[in-house]
């Protein structure tokens, strides 16, 4: 390589070194003057072009031009860098974050949405119904015997001035309303508030949230119920949980079952959450009683169906470790703001 070209390369290397060493507006200005100022070294070299041997003059001129462009751009970039550094240099990064008006979801909403989301993926629509219900939808249509204790005023809250109206005790009336309005196949989940005549304490609340699922079609079986419930809890609580079904009595279903799910915290080995049993009771379920189907005009010889329910508060308490159900309705902001994350 010709020595004049080597000289240009050496200058470029020196320039790069000087730019990187510059650490203030003054020092980069000094670099700028020294290289691309009117009396700078690059201007000097331009003056020498005429004296360069003709066979390399073309290459020399080209290389010098690109060196000048390079120098101009790199110095400019460094100037901006140094300016920005100056802007942030005055800021103490250890200052506390500025308060942000951050909203929060109620934990019941978070879990209810999770349940909705899982069922939605299984093709279930969300249905809601009135909290103030009539006796027919809440009890009669659900095959509740006239003598069933749940009908007593000691269990159920009735309205004072409107006869046969009550605060619903389950979200099951939504199932009745849906089956009255639609033909099978029906797949719905019904979340909502329900009410019982219970004195409030750490584990009881006269109002709580329930989600019930209903599936009615030809060929729906208890086996499907077991499968769907298992899938649901695996999505909600983790893929390793298992479920078990215990016989029980609910007027609305027959056969009826209580559902237990293996404790997601200890894998079923026993811990404080599951009271050492390895199992957690999560809700009722069963095959929709033929009487119920007949009441809403669905032929129980042709169609079968299952239903199941779960208490959202109970699940929420379990998952977040909330130890007093009253916290949900007290709405203390120090409680609420712990649930800021979105799903």
């Amino acid at each position: 390589m010709h020595e004049k070209i080597v000289e240009l390369q050496t200058l470029r290397e020196a320039l790069e070194k000087d730019i990187s060493k510059a650490d203030s507006p003054d020092s980069i200005e000094e670099v700028r003057v020294r290289y691309i100022g009117r009396k700078g070294s690059i201007a000097d070299l331009f003056k020498q072009i005429g004296r360069v041997e003709p066979q390399i003059r073309g290459e020399f001129g080209k290389t010098l031009n690109s060196l000048k462009q390079f120098a101009t751009a790199e110095i400019e970039r460094k100037v901006k860098d140094l300016e920005q550094q100056e802007t942030v240099a005055g800021v103490d990064p250890t200052l506390p974050p500025r308060p942000v008006a951050q909203g929060s979801y109620h934990p019941i909403t978070l879990i209810e949405r999770e349940v909705k989301r899982i069922f939605s993926r299984m093709g279930f629509a969300v249905m809601r119904g009135p909290e103030v219900e009539d006796v027919w939808h809440n009890f009669d249509a659900l095959n509740t015997p006239e003598w069933h204790p749940s009908r007593d005023a000691s269990d159920t809250l009735y309205l004072a001035d409107v006869p046969d109206m009550l605060l619903r005790t389950e979200t099951s009336p939504v199932q009745i309303r849906t089956m009255q309005a639609q033909k099978p196949p029906i797949r719905i989940v019904a979340p909502g508030r329900v009410f019982r005549n219970d004195k409030p304490d750490a584990t009881h609340s006269p109002m709580f949230t329930q989600v019930e699922g209903l599936y009615v079609d030809k060929g729906v079986t208890f086996s499907d119920l077991k499968g769907t419930v298992l899938q649901f809890y695996r999505h909600l609580l983790g893929k390793n949980v298992v479920t078990r079904f215990r016989p029980h009595f609910f007027p609305f279903t027959e056969p009826s079952a209580e559902v237990d799910v293996s404790c997601p915290f200890c894998g079923g080995n026993g811990c404080r959450v599951c009271k050492q049993s390895g199992w957690i009771e999560v809700g009722g379920s069963g095959m929709v009683d033929p009487n119920v189907l007949e009441t809403v005009g669905i032929d129980p010889e042709v169609y079968t169906g299952w239903a199941f329910g779960l208490g959202v508060e109970r699940m929420t308490m379990l998952l977040y470790g909330v130890d007093d159900i009253r916290l949900f309705y007290e709405n203390d902001i120090r409680f609420l703001q712990q649930f800021g994350g979105r799903r």
Binding site: Q182, V220, F222, K226, G227
Partner: peptide, 20 residues
């Protein structure tokens, strides 16, 4: 025994209903 009833592997899903 309820435990003898097999747990269905998958149930026949159809998108039949829509959220109101």
């Amino acid at each position: 025994g309820y435990d003898k009833v097999p747990t269905a592997e998958e149930s026949h899903v159809v998108l039949s209903n829509e959220d109101p």
